[in-house]
């Protein structure tokens, strides 16, 4: 499951939205409509701490990054844009 390729913006978008679709049980097309302001943790009742933990752990696997405790904050989890910006920063720092 681990991928080590370099993700450009569009590929990262596809990967992240696909992952959220997997967690929420959405059709991939539905997740493609997510925008930067689409609310995640705190907006979607099914996205509880256990589901978010699963999401982050899967992100580590699929994007080949390591997410530390201190990385996880409200801003990063609140919207799709926040999560994407976080992933971009992590990938850029590798």
């Amino acid at each position: 499951m681990t991928v080590s390729h370099n993700l450009d913006g569009a590929a990262l978008d596809l990967e992240l939205k696909g992952l959220i679709a997997d967690v929420l049980g959405l059709d991939p097309e539905q997740a493609q409509t997510f925008g930067p302001e689409t609310g995640l943790f705190g907006h979607l009742p099914e996205l509880d701490s256990m589901a978010v933990a699963g999401l982050l752990t899967e992100m580590e696997d699929r994007l080949g990054i390591v997410i530390e405790d201190d990385d996880v904050d409200g801003e990063m989890l609140e919207t799709y844009g926040g999560l994407r910006a976080f992933a971009e920063a992590k990938l850029g720092a590798r």
Partner: peptide, 24 residues
């Protein structure tokens, strides 16, 4: 290790939501 990592992470996220500081 992966099983524990996921479960510990869920706990730290829940703790943070509750205003508690717990580190992995």
């Amino acid at each position: 290790p992966k099983l524990l990592r996921g479960m510990i992470r869920a706990r730290t996220i829940a703790a943070r939501e509750a205003g508690l500081a717990e580190s992995s």
